[in-house]
Amino acid sequence: MPSKCTTDRLPQNVRSGIAKVLIAALLPVIVAGCRHDAPGPQVAGWQLVDPEQRHPILVSQQPATLNLRVATSADGLTPMQRARVLEFASKSKASDAGNSRIVISAPGGSPNESAAMQAADEARHLMIEGGYSETSIAVEAYHADGRDAPLRLSYMRYVAEAPDCGKDWSENLARTYQNTPYPNMGCAGQRNLAAMVANPADLLGPRTMTSRDSNRRDDMYAKYVKGAPLAAKDEAATVAKPGLSN
């Protein structure tokens, strides 16, 4: 016949003591699993609070628009309008690193429809000459009848929204005995960062790598295959020649 469990052979008082020890050991684990307000990690009594989490910078995409008035009798863009188109295109590259498409919207059904379409084609060629690829430019029409409607250029740009600071002074800074960060700590730095960042898209993640220099890499690899020295040659003007004196 199978033997009974070993603990069944122990006296009743010993088994009761073992049960109490197990309960005492498991109680802190059970309590910790049910607690949701546990403090963050601490170093020497300082609670580590990341200002980026307490005062986050909200980054969103918003449209940037340029409206150009094209008269019915106009023959393409005026010199001033061409300059505005080039400036608008350069701003799109600076604010979004050229990742967003530029949409050229020409009015359809309006008295200046023909002139606006001619101006839209000229604006497209200007941006292509300025370095934009054809796939990054879209030309479309929007309905506008009964009046002269503007030619619209737009793209989606990233905008950084700074947090509001100085509103929560619920804590008396003269009586912070625990030396924990007060509610507004780090907010001013986050607000200044949102105002100074040139491309808010950088706050979302690192930029992609640019294309490599194929000519230089192929030249160095050819030297490596031949076993030639990879270091640059010394300039003759910078090499001291022995035996020369003033």
Rank of each mutant, 00 (worst) to 15 (best):
W169R: 14
R207S: 14
P163W: 04
Y177G: 12
Y158V: 01
L203W: 06
G166A: 04
N192V: 06
N179W: 11
M185R: 10
L193M: 09
P200Q: 13
N199K: 06
D164A: 09
T176S: 11
A174E: 13
S154Q: 15
K167L: 14
C165E: 00
V197S: 00
P181M: 00
Y158T: 04
R191A: 15
N172R: 08
C187N: 00
T176D: 15
D202A: 12
T208I: 14
G186D: 00
Q190I: 01
A188I: 06
M209E: 14
Q190D: 08
L204F: 06
V159P: 05
S154A: 15
S170L: 03
R207Q: 15
N192R: 09
P206Y: 09
Q178K: 10
L204D: 05
L153D: 01
C165N: 07
G166E: 02
A188W: 01
R152S: 12
T208R: 15
T180M: 08
T180V: 10
A194L: 07
R175H: 12
L153T: 08
D202N: 11
G189S: 10
A195P: 04
R175P: 03
N199C: 09
D202R: 08
Q190T: 01
Y158S: 04
Q190S: 06
Y155T: 09
R175M: 14
Y155D: 01
D168W: 09
V197I: 15
L193D: 05
A195G: 05
S170N: 03
E171L: 12
V159G: 02
G189K: 04
A198V: 13
E161P: 03
Y177K: 12
A162Q: 02
L203Y: 08
C187R: 02
A174P: 03
D202E: 13
M196T: 12
K167Y: 13
N192I: 06
S170V: 03
K167C: 04
R152N: 02
A194S: 08
Y155L: 05
M209I: 11
A198Y: 07
A195V: 07
S170F: 08
G186R: 00
L151D: 08
T180L: 05
A188T: 10
A198P: 04
A201N: 05
R157K: 15
A194E: 07
Y177C: 02
M185K: 02
Q190H: 09
D168C: 08
D202M: 03
L151M: 01
G189D: 11
A194G: 01
